[in-house]
């Protein structure tokens, strides 16, 4: 054991900065596999040519420790370096968003007013992740404003140990963080159905969704970014780039208008059912608050008075806001 601690194990006492330090990255002599694999001639070639898009610039900049390889630059982490469990070769640790990329996401959504969808498509980060980053960054900035202590050292240490997706500057294409247009698995689609149809009938994904569940949207509409599919379809049809950009802008504009009119309609309905009573109307002069009466229906509570749409505190149902295993953060906004 002491031989290992003084030999190969010495690497883990002083871990490599900005790199994963998993057991499987080192051979039995305690040498980095990737530093052994990259021969000096290859390293020279790499320096001469442009860095490849998927390489991690941070790990390239850092000099190797003297005991491993002297005066050379580390090659980027490969598959071998991302396997934390030597026996489980199927497990690969996935990259997390780098601090700069998270800042960029917040900047695009909050400061530039881009929609979560567009920011997600541009940076190839899942929509729910973009939304989460925006929420957490908002809290972080609020804490900074309030002079609350942040766990910066912890965050730095963790980010140095994990593979991260870096932020690429403009001329380079953004590095893909994850697949963003996956079809979510709807519970209705997990069953196996044998649906007899005639050969002459065209059976599309729209029909397939109807077979699973009459209420289910077709697969093309359930994905997060249907507009990317449309763009790719147009590209394959050979439509010129200017035309495609114009069409996409038009679509985006239409979508925005649709959403705005929907919101306006919702506000109008809400305003119509709302009755405001100001203190002056009650004969008082300049009270502290107003009363807002919202019209509801007692029928919403259902026959047993327990339907989720009903108004009012429920009877016979314990309030489980302090119980374990319940989601306490709002799941709908």
């Amino acid at each position: 054991m002491f031989a290992w601690l003084k030999g190969p194990g010495e690497n883990f006492r002083r871990p490599l900065p900005d790199s994963t330090n998993y057991l499987s990255s080192y051979n039995s002599q305690g040498r980095l596999w990737r530093s052994l694999e990259s021969s000096p001639t290859l390293a020279l070639d790499e320096e001469a040519s442009d860095p490849p898009a998927e390489s991690n610039p941070e790990s390239k900049e850092n000099p190797l420790q003297s005991q491993v390889v002297s005066e050379d630059k580390l090659p980027p982490e490969d598959k071998q370096d991302l396997k934390p469990f030597p026996v489980n070769s199927d497990f690969t640790s996935q990259p997390v968003l780098s601090e700069e990329l998270r800042e960029e996401i917040y900047d695009r959504v909050v400061n530039n007013g881009k929609s979560v969808k567009i920011a997600s498509a541009e940076l190839s980060v899942d929509m729910s992740r973009v939304a989460a980053v925006v929420r957490l960054k908002t809290i972080e900035k609020d804490w900074v404003k309030k002079n609350k202590p942040l766990a910066k050292a912890y965050s730095k240490a963790i980010l140095e140990m994990l593979p991260t997706t870096p932020l690429t500057k403009f001329p380079m294409r953004p590095k893909m963080h994850e697949s963003i247009n996956d079809l979510p698995v709807h519970p209705a689609t997990t069953q196996q159905i044998f649906e007899p149809t005639s050969e002459s009938r065209s059976f599309t994904r729209i029909d397939a969704s109807k077979v699973f569940d009459p209420e289910l949207l077709p697969a093309d509409e359930r994905i997060s970014h249907p507009e990317l599919i449309e763009l790719e379809r147009e590209r394959r049809l050979g439509i010129s780039q200017e035309e495609r950009i114009m069409r996409q802008r038009e679509r985006a504009k239409k979508e925005l208008e649709r959403r705005e009119s929907k919101e306006r309609r919702r506000d109008e309905i809400e305003e119509a059912t709302l009755k405001r009573v100001l203190p002056a109307e009650r004969g008082g002069n300049g009270g502290r608050w107003e009363w807002r009466f919202r019209e509801i229906s007692v029928q919403d509570a259902g026959k047993d008075g327990r339907a989720p749409g009903g108004v009012g505190w429920r009877y016979g149902i314990p309030h489980e806001d302090r119980k374990k295993g319940h989601v306490k953060i709002p799941t709908r906004v």
Partner: peptide, 9 residues
């Protein structure tokens, strides 16, 4: 002003 919310059928 701040408001007090009342829901009523």
């Amino acid at each position: 002003k701040p408001f007090k919310d009342i829901r009523l059928d």
